[in-house]
Write a protein that binds this DNA or RNA. Sequence first.
DNA 1: CTGAAAGCGCTAACAT
DNA 2: ATGTTAGCGCTTTCAG
Lengths: 342, 342
Amino acid sequence: MLEPVTLAHVAREAGVSPSTVSRILNGTANVTPEKRVRVEAVIARLNFRPNPQAQALAGGRSLSIGVITPSLHSTFYGEALAGIEAALDDTPYHPLVISGQWRTEREQEALDVLLARRVDAVILLGGILDDEILQHVARRVPLIAVGREVRGLSECCIVLDNAAGMRLVAKHLLSLGHRQFAYISGAERQSDALERRHAFLGTLQAAGLTVPDGLIQVGNYTEDGGRLAAQRLLDTGLPFTALACANDQMALGARLTLYRAGLRVPEDVSLTGFDDVVTSSLMTPPLTTVRQAIYDIGTVAAREALNLLAGQPVNRQLFTPELVVRDSTAPSPSPSPAEAQA
Amino acid sequence: MLEPVTLAHVAREAGVSPSTVSRILNGTANVTPEKRVRVEAVIARLNFRPNPQAQALAGGRSLSIGVITPSLHSTFYGEALAGIEAALDDTPYHPLVISGQWRTEREQEALDVLLARRVDAVILLGGILDDEILQHVARRVPLIAVGREVRGLSECCIVLDNAAGMRLVAKHLLSLGHRQFAYISGAERQSDALERRHAFLGTLQAAGLTVPDGLIQVGNYTEDGGRLAAQRLLDTGLPFTALACANDQMALGARLTLYRAGLRVPEDVSLTGFDDVVTSSLMTPPLTTVRQAIYDIGTVAAREALNLLAGQPVNRQLFTPELVVRDSTAPSPSPSPAEAQA
DNA sequence: CTGAAAGCGCTAACAT
DNA sequence: ATGTTAGCGCTTTCAG
């Protein structure tokens, strides 16, 4: 285990003081070109990298940006993480990721750990922490929230127009002639889940249609939640020709239930999701969904965090959703003669 | 932005020296019960958390464990990451994740960054770095490699018995009566891809069967690679009734190609994967695959890393694979009369 | 423009 | 058992 080379080594080797090396490293002050060249040569030769721990301690910045994600193995949040990492790539900052696992205590704990690690900023992906707590945190450290609205912090929120997106879905389904709908919603505590559901039901209502209570089930944005919710839907025995899910992961789970029940997609029931996770285009059949450029949103979140750090004002980012029509939706099956008579 | 409370504050407040507080924090030495209680009370009241940066600098340990993963948004590696995070949860250590994106330079860079950050150990998930480089790294910092064999470092490798797993698949397919096979392999540079392919082809050979060159295509362990490889397979026009893929993600991609081509799974072609990623059980139809408990492997990797840190010897971990039969495989379709005559 | 010196918050000998 | 004293590697006044 070799001894790591320190700034002091470099200074000695180059025949200058540590401060000079530091200044060159940070561009803090002007240095004679010849010294700069000399020092830079030594840095390169020794392959010196400043110790971030020491920099953090002395400089008061940790050079790391905390990220709280609900899950590490979610196709959706994984993409966001990839975007954040990519955006931070050319900067001296590094993401420090902790998962909250959809549990308030875990999220709180994650926040504590990140603050203890003195992260310079925090990016919160989704999550269920109270607005009050977040407002408090935002006072200690620059905060960016993705995919959720935080009261009093709307400038720092990067959100998608959920209502507009879900309206697109509802209209698409209506235009295909569907009249009997089922809906799988996200958890009530999440604002985006509420927005999506409200927009879906609202659009149908505007068209003079309602969805019976039994055909609205709550999943929790996970594949398994979707699978179970779809089962409850079928258990009601109520008819429907279109099933809209509040996100792609639940649509994937629901699709399994439909398969097991011998229902064909889209011949028997049209299925839709929301988010356009990468795997959705690979489903059988490929899923009709709403594109939310989550990777890009991740990069924007990281950049906004950097801006906040630099003391620049952030301005609210609202992403526009886009309907992606694939094979999982088709015209409503014409009712069988018997049903038509009924 | 409140001032963080420091160990010095706690010491003053409790009327003891900083060292005493430190000792209590680390359990380094015995402290009078009464003092301990007093100090602990103050710690709780002030909600004090030691600054990890300072601990790192003074103690020579960063309390973080570097993790290099090929990808942040992979269902497979995501699970491993979740396992690692979970195993580290009750320890003072924290994972620092960087993605290598299947590019040697990126992996090298990731390694450099982690070493610069003075991580206490490194866990390498898959990856394509040369064995020589890893041997060198292992001399500087405890290293655990997951899913790959590193020459001269076999003790630190956590691997699955790839050959045994793929043999299970081949035998399963043979027992279903299949005689015409196609195979989608991982990249040549990865040892596990090689092992799996060799085992598959070897088992068929032992049964007196060979696979024509055109029906062996190389993907790169990604969904898209599988999709493309499957297309090349179909383009050859050669017949096959079973398609084995070297991992689940490629099987998912291949499944899309089959769907587009109007081929039914498993009626027209049986499809298999490897890994048993969570989403595989949700495919339409659910995928027959080899279970590799990747989450568990992640936790073991983290624990082994901790062991290495503690100076305890690690012993080579070999996981045993298990066949999971689902709906994507079925008896070989009886050849049509025309084919039977040919 | 540059060096000397004083910490950042903590740990780890070294004393006592 | 506990306090005192040095640093860890770097940044940042403060002089010059």
